[in-house]
Design a protein around this nucleic acid. Sequence first.
DNA 1: CGATGACTTGAACGCCATCAATCGCTGTGG
DNA 2: CCACAGCGATTGATGGCGTTCAAGTCATCG
Lengths: 230, 230
Amino acid sequence: MFTLLSTDPHKKPRLVGELSGLSHASVSSGEFKYSKGTEIFGEAEPADYIYQVIEGAVRTHKLLSDGRRQIGAFHLPGDIFGLDNGDFHRFTAEAIVDTALRLVERRILERVAKTDPTMARRLLTMTTANLQHVENRILLLGRNTARERVAAFLIEMNGRLTSAGVIALPMNRRDIADYLGLAFETVSREFSAFHRKGYLRFLDPMQRQIIVLDAAGLTGIAQQTSAKLD
Amino acid sequence: MFTLLSTDPHKKPRLVGELSGLSHASVSSGEFKYSKGTEIFGEAEPADYIYQVIEGAVRTHKLLSDGRRQIGAFHLPGDIFGLDNGDFHRFTAEAIVDTALRLVERRILERVAKTDPTMARRLLTMTTANLQHVENRILLLGRNTARERVAAFLIEMNGRLTSAGVIALPMNRRDIADYLGLAFETVSREFSAFHRKGYLRFLDPMQRQIIVLDAAGLTGIAQQTSAKLD
DNA sequence: CGATGACTTGAACGCCATCAATCGCTGTGG
DNA sequence: CCACAGCGATTGATGGCGTTCAAGTCATCG
């Protein structure tokens, strides 16, 4: 559902170190903390590092000149991002909450990949997984209704960040809206509608802790293509 | 703007053969013709070949169960597609007009890439170029108005298939609409509006031969991110 | 405890989709 | 050769989905 390693499709890599697991070279890496709201890198900045989320959550986005924002992806613990290949980032990345990241120098990966086909294949696999996710979002943004988008979002998050059956959303309604191409009020209304229908239960007053009571119901609403979602 | 080789960023590869240009293995390939409207491959079918357009035009799409369609890309002479990596295609591909394609077996490319880092890098570069294009479309589909989308489409096509200053669109209004996430009537209305404003001239009654009279005007409308379009 | 931010809910507007009619071109068969 | 069917495109009329504007609640924090 957005797992970035597909040599091992059911498990996220636990460490960037696994990236180079099969190579002989060791890949230097360091861990850094970013507090809530801080920028990790900006659009069009040189892409010197790639990142893995240790703890917390990251959003990437593009802006239009008048302030309209499109969020490209949410990155959760285990996810690798910033592999924008090409020498410049194509999104701005920010910490949604206090976040710990592991950084790896990109030029080192590239140097390894230059001689090690296995590493090269891993980079390709990760890029391909990204591409696949983004292609599905094209269909979502181009052709799905607001209700379908929100249902798809809940299903995605149910698969990605559930623990003990509870989705604990790190992002606010505006982030979700900008991810789905909607107004935040619309996201709120659809959440309420799903709640009224009995598909969801909210655990906290701010309604970010969510239990999906009827995943099948949501899946039915989130019209999808014949091919599988991930 | 969607050129698939970026070791040589300003030129499309003229032949798939160039794909293996730096490898020692020769890559077998064959040329095939597809008449207007025929399917080249279907979504979720095994991806046994990759393709290069010799002549004509190809569209790829996904469908929702109720018939809503999203076109993923248009492929024009020189473009390589079907590099869906992953063993199955994620879109259906069809010939828009009578089309000639060159085919290359994917497993051969993969075998070469397994030992040849240069080939591996080329595959990665092509995939990355795809990713970049798709990421820009996410912003377009998520946050741009109908007018902005149509302007962006015209600019894209002006860059990709102009000859002698004339855009000769191979696709109909419905294809354009399904590419931009709009109704075809909306596309038609925006074309008319740009014509009325003096941005466009139409050369034929079906209005598929178009001259862009004011590219700057269109660019101004097609709100874009701070980073460059391609 | 007042201020700020996140979220929900209501009301009204507007962009774009939908429905519908018309026109011109293309191709086919009598 | 022409009539006619069918497709592609434009244009008009209408309506609806989602945005925008606005108010109000609740939680958090200085």
